[in-house]
Computed example of a mutant assay.
Amino acid sequence: MQEHDLSFVRAEMVASQKPPVSDHGPVSWLRKNLFANMTDTIFTILGIALIVMIVPPVIQWAFIDAQWTGADRSVCATVVQGGTQPEGWSGACWAFVDAKFQQFMFGRYPIDERWRVYLTGFLFVALLVPLLLPSVPRKGLNAILLFVVFPIVGFFLLSGGVLGLRPVPTPLWGGLLVTLVLAYVGIAVSFPLGILLALGRRSQMPVVKLVCIVFIETIRGVPLITILFMASVMLPLFLPPGTSFDKLLRALVGVALFASAYMAEVIRGGLQAIPKGQYEGADALGLSFWKKMNLVVLPQAIKLVIPGIVNTFIGLFKDTSLVYIIGMFDLLGAVRQNFADANWASPQTPITGLVFAGFVFWLFCFGMSRYSIFMERRLDTGHKR
């Protein structure tokens, strides 16, 4: 039997070594994400150059040279303009935002009654947060309280006239209060109505299908400003003499119908993406139409179009600023209205107010976007191995 020479075989394992520096740590991340090839390198350099050009002046304007407190325009105007700042000064006038903050939030809502707005906001958050957290049970009851009970309670709290509450007419409402009311009602109404319109457009009944198509295409074919003008100016002309609707109610109806048409198309896209076998399987089980949609089709369709749904909600939230055209003062309208205050008239006042309004809109829209991403990842189980 031939003997084998095992002198070249290692008798013990070699100690593990650290990977090269270029394969882990910050250097590896930079190489893979920013300098992977020539194109990435060029765009990275251009991006850094833009950041260097834009960010330092913004920080200088918004924080370093900004005026945070003050009683009137003098703190935000140069000596030449009748203020106290040196000639050539340019900084944010956050003193204007601080002085007008209550108006930006509540409009002309009576100061001694604003506790009702705080209470309504607290109830809204208390019902919304459990609905958004997947681990909290009883979602059905939570949804009923948020979308059925809360609107009634909130309406009477804000409007008053019952249980000894002082009446507060809607023309006194304004600021972020109006923005949130319009967005909440628009979202709460457009989602279920959009589902019904999408199902109607795919219906086998010609009359139902035709009505849904005409409604969707008509609404989507005109800008929201037109819908608001129709609801605010034209609608009273078609009502019996002496009959009138509250202007806020008319705006709510216009915004909700406008968003519903776009939501219907988003949902219809999800319905068309569901394989035909899902419909046939539900029919084979003997499910009725509504059970088939509720238990089989819609859960899958809605999961597929979460980005489109949230995109519609974000667009709706931003479009609420258009009610300024019909004489209602939402957050942006309240900011612009205060530009006319002679006590705060300065070159820096308008841009500061608009930046503040833009930042508030961004906070809400960014929050909806991040929650959308969270839900997408949580529900993305169809193709995982």
Rank of each mutant, 00 (worst) to 15 (best):
A198S: 15
V117Y: 03
I64C: 06
G82P: 05
L128K: 01
L119V: 13
L193V: 14
C365M: 13
T69M: 13
F313N: 07
L172F: 09
H24S: 10
L295A: 15
E376M: 07
A259T: 05
T381Y: 00
A251I: 08
N37G: 15
F361G: 13
L182N: 04
V185I: 11
I48L: 15
A342W: 09
I195M: 14
G221R: 11
F122Q: 03
L295V: 11
S244H: 11
K291F: 01
V323W: 01
L354S: 15
L235F: 05
P26S: 06
V335W: 00
L182C: 02
S244V: 01
F356C: 02
D40F: 08
S321K: 15
L295M: 14
L165D: 06
L322R: 07
T41V: 08
T381R: 01
G121F: 03
K209G: 12
A345W: 09
I219D: 01
S244K: 14
P134C: 14
L257K: 09
A126W: 06
N294K: 07
T312N: 14
R268F: 02
T84F: 09
L145H: 08
W94G: 10
G333E: 13
P57Q: 02
W290N: 08
V189Q: 07
A198F: 01
L224N: 02
I306L: 14
A251M: 14
L158A: 04
Q81A: 13
G47R: 10
V75T: 09
F215N: 06
F289L: 12
N343G: 06
S190M: 12
A345E: 08
K292A: 10
F313P: 02
T349G: 12
S135A: 00
L131E: 12
C93T: 09
L228V: 11
R31K: 15
C212R: 02
F191E: 05
D98H: 10
R166T: 10
L285I: 03
C212M: 11
